[in-house]
């Protein structure tokens, strides 16, 4: 059984006087212990809302969450706030994009760490202090004793993110959710943090969900990838499989449109996906990517697109597309007429 099972998760935002917005729509995925799972998407794809829903961190007013989230056999979706708080910080921990706003600016780094350790791990104050020092050392912070007595603003961005990670792993969580943890950081610092996360997952055997817009980050870190577009997962596969044969036109277009640093003979113009994420279709009417898709046919607008399985039962590679890239002839002969 998987560590985390997300089944048919949906999140709808309702605001008075406005059409409800379905930000996440029928999302299902698994995370096994020791596994890193990437959720990739652009702004508005619903990737961050998915992670907040898994953590139970969405506000209750104006938000409807459907589906189930099961962690280690415990169903989180119908747990009360109190039990959920216990789980957060102990079994599941989250790392956010901006470490400055996630750390309390008026409390020393040490106290923030100690607080987590005494509350969730049940350590005494003395034990917690010693453990906090160990944790900072473990996440690669030099001179941890001094850093414990300092405030978050006295640290650089990279150091702050390390402190956040130290807080997140303080109680040896089973699942780590990292929401764009390196987006605010410079490349060399990003490399340090990704390296640290890789090591932590390998050493502790926890599962990790990596929310990112950067396919490069996914390529270097994740075992499985789910690509989200407009609230739904449009393609899922093992990382190598996905990069070897991106099959949803969106994934494919995205990969082709990214300039690569190791491209020794860059083409004059980049491949582009036309339009923007605003050009969309409601999923129940058709494929949300249809207005931007070069492979679109009339059928793409006749109801929600079915999922095509391109993998095997053991190594699945589902694609939510009627005409996956590289599959035209075998699957949908005759659909090509527009």
């Amino acid at each position: 059984m998987s560590l985390l099972e997300v089944r048919d998760l949906s999140v709808t935002f309702t605001r008075s006087g406005q059409e409800p917005v379905r930000a996440v729509d029928g999302v299902s995925f698994d995370v096994a212990a020791g596994q890193s799972v990437g959720i990739v998407g652009e702004s508005g794809s619903g990737k961050s809302v998915t992670s907040l829903a898994v953590m139970g961190l969405l506000p209750s007013r104006g938000v409807q969450v459907g589906g189930t989230v099961t962690l280690d056999g415990n169903e989180l979706t119908d747990m009360d706030q109190r039990a959920l708080r216990d789980i957060r910080g102990r079994d599941v921990a989250m790392i956010f994009q901006d470490p400055m706003t996630s750390l309390n600016p008026v409390v020393t780094n040490g106290r923030q760490l100690v607080e987590v350790l005494t509350r969730h791990a049940g350590l005494s104050k003395g034990e917690a202090k010693a453990e906090a020092e160990q944790l900072l050392r473990r996440v690669g912070i030099p001179d941890p004793v001094r850093r414990l007595g300092e405030y978050p603003h006295q640290l650089s961005g990279g150091m702050r993110q390390r402190v956040m990670i130290a807080i997140a792993i303080a109680c040896r969580p089973k699942l780590l959710i990292a929401d764009e943890p390196t987006t605010a950081l410079d490349v060399t610092i990003q490399a340090q943090i990704l390296d640290l996360l890789r090591t932590l997952v390998a050493e502790s055997g926890c599962g990790m969900i990596m929310i990112t817009h950067d396919l490069g980050v996914v390529a270097g870190l994740c075992d499985d990838v789910h690509v989200m577009y407009s609230g739904r997962i449009v393609e899922s596969a093992g990382t190598k499989d996905l990069f070897a044969r991106p099959s949803h036109p969106y994934t494919d277009g995205l990969l082709q449109s990214i300039p690569r640093i190791d491209d020794d003979d860059p083409a004059d113009l980049l491949h582009t996906i036309p339009g923007s994420a605003r050009d969309t279709v409601a999923w129940d009417r058709g494929c949300a990517f249809q207005p931007r898709c070069a492979r679109a046919v009339a059928e793409c607008l006749s109801g929600p697109p079915a999922v095509t399985e391109l993998g095997t039962p053991i190594v699945p590679h589902p694609v939510r597309c009627l005409r996956p890239v590289g599959q035209d002839v075998s699957l949908h002969e005759g659909n090509v007429a527009r």
Binding site: F13, V21, S45, G46, R278
Partner: peptide, 21 residues
């Protein structure tokens, strides 16, 4: 452009795609 669906924006939330300009 007729198929474009207008999705209301959610501040701080998901779809920052309010209106097709």
């Amino acid at each position: 452009m007729s198929v474009n669906e207008v999705v209301a924006g959610e501040p701080g939330g998901p779809a920052p795609a309010p209106t097709e300009a």
